[in-house]
Amino acid sequence: MVKESQIWNWLESVSDPEVPVLSVVDLGVVRKVEVSESGTKITITPTYSGCPAMQVIEEDIRRKLLQEGLSNLEVVTALSPAWTTDWLSENGRRKLKEYGIAPPENEVDKSLLFSKPIVVPCPNCNSKETKMVSEFGSTACKAHYQCLSCKEPFDYFKCLR
């Protein structure tokens, strides 16, 4: 029987189709790996309800593990507990920044309206002089910012808690 840790290692090489620099493990969407006599069960959870990458992620996980010789494989989706950016690994946060996407600041403004946008340092020049352009960005998990120092626009992987 394959060890659970071995499966986690394999999953490290399955990347998120929308932010390919992250693996599905870095992203925190793989919640559980269960190995038993009867087979292997992987539990995944979506980042956002409408995340179009979920189906691809499920297929990629399946393909990878079948390639590694596993059979009797089951990939299930669980909605609760709901995904949070707290599950993004340290490694994942570092990779995001290197890729040019500001990692989530661990802070959510509790006020419902006209909250002061949180300070997000520019992933390119580290300046804290940045502004939020829109809370909605190129994918559901990102907001759109601009650096006021180097003028570069950048994506912010927004905090979800």
Binding site: S49, G50, C51, E135, F136, G137, A140, H144
Partner: peptide, 13 residues
Amino acid sequence: IALTNISLDLIGQ
């Protein structure tokens, strides 16, 4: 982009 994102969330729900 905002409206499209909202639409996507709703269709996901």
